[in-house]
């Protein structure tokens, strides 16, 4: 069984309560069409699960296959340095066909980043290192394509169609409530 390494920590971008009973972690690539679809599914699952779900996203750009993926991941991390990771994350997935540098700068402006700072950060060693360390953590955790999900630290290999994923998460929540 492949497990998440390292476990969630201060470097991670999370949505939801840190003490939520169910933790869903996605390794994704902003240029991957499957991840684009998964993005909508995660949103729906988050709505349905409410406070019971924590969601975290780690970068796994397959840059040899998706030429814009690395840059897009760096854009999300650069926006994250200005506390705007999630708005950038959403914009990137909503605009997967438009991930050129000009677009990324425009998105930074749209979500209220200091664009000059963003333009510096996207090229910084710090941001490159964060994306690389996400990728390596994925490789060590047994990520074998994008998206790969981990639920409470274990790799989830079944379907992530919304009804299946939601019922798995709900069942886990139910089990916890019974304890």
């Amino acid at each position: 069984m492949s497990t998440l390494r390292p476990t969630l920590n201060a470097q991670d971008h999370i949505q939801g309560r840190p003490d939520a009973p169910i933790q869903l972690v996605e390794y994704g690539d902003y240029e991957c069409p499957f991840c684009g679809r998964a993005h909508l599914i995660v949103k729906a699952v988050q709505r349905a699960m409410g406070d019971d779900l924590l969601f975290a996203f780690r970068n796994f750009p397959l840059s040899q296959v998706h030429p814009h993926a690395l840059r897009a991941a760096q854009a999300a991390e650069a926006a994250g340095l200005q506390d705007r990771f999630w708005p950038m994350h959403d914009l990137l997935f909503q605009n997967q066909q438009f991930l050129e540098d000009g677009h990324l700068l425009r998105y930074a402006g749209l979500i209220g980043c200091d664009v000059d700072q963003f333009a510096q950060d996207i090229d910084s060693e710090e941001v490159a290192e964060k994306v690389r360390s996400d990728f390596l953590s994925g490789a060590r955790s047994g990520v074998n394509g994008t998206p790969t999900f981990f639920i409470n630290g274990e790799r989830y290999d079944a379907s992530w169609e919304p009804d299946v994923l939601l019922s798995v998460l709900q069942e886990l929540r139910g089990v916890r409530e019974l304890r």
Partner: peptide, 13 residues
């Protein structure tokens, strides 16, 4: 098609 590109990304490692 998923497996080999991951190895490709990991060549530096």
């Amino acid at each position: 098609s998923d497996q080999l590109p991951i190895y490709s990304e990991l060549m530096p490692e």
